[in-house]
Design a protein around this nucleic acid. Structure first.
Length: 338
DNA sequence: CCCCCTGA
DNA sequence: TCAGGGGGG
């Protein structure tokens, strides 16, 4: 998922506290997908309430947002709108992969292959309309703002950073760099260690910051050429050139200057090339949003999570106390700045 | 993913 | 105090 240019990029590890007082635009789709695929029981089943509704994303939002708000971060979720026409084959492919994974999950479960089952369970995760609706409901009750993008969320988030309404984008994907976001944070989490699935290995997972301009300088290319590299490798909107990975793409772009000349040289074509380039450079965005962080509406959160979705009231109340102490206009350290 | 308890 | 394991919904 997303564009595979990570190998080309330098990043520096940071602490969440380095993002204190920063407004961080969170790629909602990416984050929710992450929650849905990772927050699971050992057999691969996601967390569910007694009615069978998936609740993994709600758990993820409650605890992670509480943690980062406590660290002084001001999060805003940015949701996807209508995808561009040229994304349809990617979307279709994802659906097929997901359906296939569902079948393989059932098959592996039947055969008692735990590791296989878990892997395919994760690949079956889907951010559907209910997941999005639930997430927005919880965020609103927690006092955390969200924005509805007209098209791609990462494009909207990049616009907000460029405009100065946000300081960083949080996403595991690199696509927002193609939309020109100056700073991207990966691994936005407070907990330091993560257990590798089914292995007794713990890896340190620290947030990392990728600075767009620093990377362009280091690679000796400009923003347009970064987009061209992505187009060579393949994006959500095109298939890329066969046999060309990020390193070759960089070499080709530096050698030929741009993707048009590379394609000409190789006698190849990319469907909709001009339209896709234009989409990365000036995607549909909106100014129709307001960023306001409020105190959590505790009874609303408790009603939604505990009454409707069977969360433990003790745990939710504890999280809400932490959130309330550090959120909205109430935090004295924030008051000094706003 | 995260919380929470346990044992050293 | 903190790594490790179990469970969360």
């Amino acid at each position: 998922m997303g564009v595979d240019i990570g190998d080309l990029l330098q990043r520096r590890t940071i602490e969440v506290s380095d993002l204190s007082l920063n407004t961080v635009a969170i790629d909602a789709f990416n984050t929710l997908y992450q929650f849905l695929s990772i927050i699971r029981q050992r057999d691969g089943t996601p967390l569910k309430d007694s009615q069978g509704n998936v609740t993994s994303h709600l758990s993820g939002i409650l605890y992670r947002m509480t943690n980062i708000v406590e660290a002084g971060v001001k999060p805003v979720f940015v949701f996807d709108g209508k995808p561009p026409e040229f994304k349809s084959s990617t979307i279709q492919k994802r659906t097929e992969v997901r359906e296939n994974a569902k079948a393989k999950w059932a098959e592996a479960k039947e055969k008692g292959l735990a590791e296989e089952a878990y892997k395919y369970a994760q690949a079956s995760a889907k951010v559907d309309a209910t997941i999005v609706e639930d997430s927005k409901k919880l965020l609103a009750a927690m006092g955390i703002p969200y924005v509805d993008a007209p098209s791609e969320g990462e494009a909207q988030a990049a616009y907000m950073v460029k405009k100065g309404d946000a300081d960083r984008i949080a996403s595991q994907d690199y696509d927002s760099l193609l939309f020109g976001s100056p700073k991207v944070v990966r691994n936005l989490t407070v907990s330091g260690k993560r257990k590798l699935p089914k292995k007794n290995i713990y890896v340190d997972v620290k947030p990392e910051l990728i600075d767009l301009q620093e990377n362009l300088d280091e690679l000796g290319i400009d923003q347009s050429q970064l987009i061209d590299i992505a187009l060579c490798v393949g994006t959500d909107y095109n298939d890329g050139i066969e046999g060309v990975g990020p390193k070759t793409a960089l070499k080709l772009v530096k050698e030929h200057g741009n993707i048009e000349r590379i394609l000409q040289e190789k006698g190849l074509e990319i469907e909709n090339l001009d339209g896709i380039k234009e989409f990365f450079k000036s995607p549909p965005v909106t100014n129709d949003y307001s960023l306001k962080w409020n105190k959590p509406n505790s009874s609303e959160v408790i009603n939604f999570l505990c009454t409707e979705h069977d969360f433990s009231e003790d745990r939710v109340t504890k999280a809400l106390e932490r959130l309330e102490a550090s959120s909205g206009s109430g935090q004295s350290t924030l008051d000094k700045w706003f």
